[in-house]
């Protein structure tokens, strides 16, 4: 198959993002500030796990092992997720702000992929459209509730979260060595195109919701995740995630 390496690189990025982000969101089950948010974060997490499963399944069809093996047995260096999704947080402001930054990128990524020349990816993009719509509804609602509509305290916490996370969010769009090939083959319009679309959407949204977006030229994006160099938080996450699976990887669980 042509462009196989480029396609697989894209699929691993997306699948690993969805898995790790879903895992992080699931950590709020039972711990969110109101019960409705326990439920919402769990729903989003379940959707993300579903996306990861679909993407790993696609990789399986390209000759890789099954989804459980891909998710639960790879080494940290083999993961291609961005740093944003790896960050642990016990601060709900950070969890919500990450949710907004990441899911608006996801929405734009899948929108672009609806036109993908790789048919399974285009079909998945159409399928997840309805789910991601609710993720961004949820994120934008809370951005406003805790921003313009919130208290000085909530705005300050969310603003601090935005400033902390913004360099990580720009790391979502770390270019790959396959950008030209992905574009030329029609598989994906590329990270730069995605970054531009995301900025066009997220900056007005954040400003309207009452936040100050850090000037772009002052922010150094957090890169490395896409080539397998991760924050110190990914390895402990993987250790935890695979703790039971590793008892006997050949057993059926």
């Amino acid at each position: 198959m042509e462009h196989r390496a480029a396609l697989e690189d894209l699929l691993f990025r997306m699948a690993d993002d969805a898995l790790i982000y879903g895992h992080r969101n699931s950590e709020w089950t039972g711990l969110a500030p109101i019960l409705e948010e326990d439920i919402a974060f769990s729903s989003i997490a379940q959707d993300k796990l579903g996306h990861a499963l679909a993407l790993y399944t696609m990789l399986g069809q390209l000759g890789h092992p099954d989804p459980d093996t891909l998710a639960f047995t790879r080494q940290e260096r083999q993961f291609r997720c961005c740093h944003l999704v790896e960050l642990p947080t016990q601060d709900y402001a950070v969890a919500l702000m990450r949710h907004a930054l990441f899911d608006y990128a996801e929405r734009n990524r899948y929108r672009l992929l609806e036109q993908s020349s790789f048919a399974p990816l285009a079909a998945l993009a159409q399928k997840v459209r309805g789910e991601i719509k609710y993720h961004t509804f949820h994120a934008s609602t809370w951005l406003r509730l805790l921003g313009r509509e919130g208290t000085d305290e909530s705005r300050a916490r969310m603003q601090a979260a935005l400033e902390m996370l913004f360099p990580y969010a720009l790391g979502i769009f770390e270019p790959s060595r396959y950008e030209d090939e992905l574009r030329a083959s029609g598989i994906f319009a590329g990270e730069e195109e995605l970054r531009q679309r995301w900025l066009d959407e997220i900056i007005p949204l954040l400003e309207e919701a009452g936040y100050r977006v850090p000037p772009l030229d002052s922010v150094q994006p957090c890169y490395g995740g896409r080539s397998g160099y991760h924050t110190e938080h990914l390895q402990p996450l993987l250790d935890e995630m695979t703790a039971v699976f590793r008892i006997d990887p050949s057993a059926e669980w």
Binding site: H23, S26, E27, T29, Q46, L49, G50, A52, L53, P67, D68, A71, F72, L237, E240, M241, T242, A243, V244, F245, I247, W253
Partner: peptide
């Protein structure tokens, strides 16, 4: 939840 073995169980 964070330790569930495999996609099926985790979800």
């Amino acid at each position: 939840i964070t330790r569930a073995p495999g996609f099926k169980r985790k979800m």
